[in-house]
């Protein structure tokens, strides 16, 4: 933490960045995103197990972009997000400073996206055991049971779009649900509207989702959205050998046509 604060202060003092997007203390034992713009406030930065929000969400937000060049305190998923955003041309090398604090108080400053790629290639991405257990449970269901399970989950959706707003890959200035000619996705939060919304979002994230879990954590009613995302991550990986957030250059499977693409699924 000391390393982080020192670095943040130095970056701000040197004018190398205008804002450090990091974590500070929140309500009770929550941590929250803070935006440190004055060097003397660098001591408000914290880093520990509570710091889970994927701060890369703020790299594409207009209000934050207006502040000037940022440094970002990045967790493992945030590092992946940085690469994926770079691959989708949302951020550019040199446009930000990436700081990854370790649990032991150490701090890595990544100079290039290539350095992040190298680092991630050797890093393990542990999966939460409780989430894995839920995944296994749902996978073991019959298709019929699973359909009922999802209808039940999705019927609780209130269409607050917290999942989308919290998702760093949902940066579209106008989301498909807001396109009304034609109205692709029904706006109301009824069964069909909810189902189409959640399926649409999952599909738009297929192959792009970095599995940070922020959509699930943002959902006020606790819909396990990560399950949808992970299944698709698995499918993309097994079919196209791609995984989002591992490279700063993206040859995105679902939107790139190759002449030798398989077509046997078209009937």
């Amino acid at each position: 933490m000391d390393e982080l604060r020192k670095k943040a202060r130095a970056l701000l003092e040197a004018g190398e960045v205008r804002v450090v997007i990091g974590y500070g203390g929140g309500t009770g034992d929550r941590a929250r995103a803070i935006f440190v713009r004055e060097p003397e406030r660098a001591d408000e930065l914290i880093f520990d197990g509570r710091c889970r929000q994927n701060l890369a969400i703020y790299l594409t937000r207009r209000e934050v972009k207006e502040l000037g060049k940022p440094a970002i305190v990045a967790t493992l998923p945030a590092l992946k997000t940085v690469l994926q955003l770079a691959g989708e041309f949302q951020i550019a090398e040199g446009g930000l400073v990436v700081l990854a604090p370790g649990a032991d108080g150490s701090l890595i400053e990544f100079k290039t996206f290539a350095d992040i790629e190298k680092y991630l290639a050797g890093a393990a991405s542990p999966i939460d055991p409780a989430e894995q257990a839920e995944m296994d449970r749902v996978r073991a269901m019959s298709p019929d049971e699973r359909w009922k399970y999802w209808l039940g989950q999705i019927s609780r959706c209130i269409k607050c779009y917290a999942c989308r707003q919290a998702c760093p890959m949902c940066y579209c200035p106008r989301c498909t649900v807001e396109c009304n000619q034609p109205q692709w996705i029904p706006v109301p939060s009824h069964e069909l509207g909810n189902l189409e919304w959640n399926v649409m979002r999952a599909m738009h994230l297929a192959g792009r989702c970095v599995d940070c879990g922020d959509c699930s954590r943002a959902c006020p009613v606790g819909i396990p959205l990560y399950l949808l995302n992970r299944v698709l991550i698995g499918d993309i990986e097994s079919n196209f050998h791609q995984r989002a957030g591992m490279k700063a250059e993206v040859d995105y499977a679902l939107s790139t046509f190759h002449p030798d693409d398989r077509e046997n699924f078209i009937r």
């Binding site: 995103a33 935006f35 703020y58 209000e63 934050v64 607050c160 919290a166 943002a218």
Partner: peptide
């Protein structure tokens, strides 16, 4: 509001928020 995401969670769980859309 810098960290605010612009979602509807606060308004939708709020017992007094009454804003609506017509579709």
């Amino acid at each position: 509001a810098l960290r605010c995401l612009g979602c509807g969670a606060c308004a939708y769980v709020c017992p007094t928020c009454a804003c609506f859309d017509i579709q």
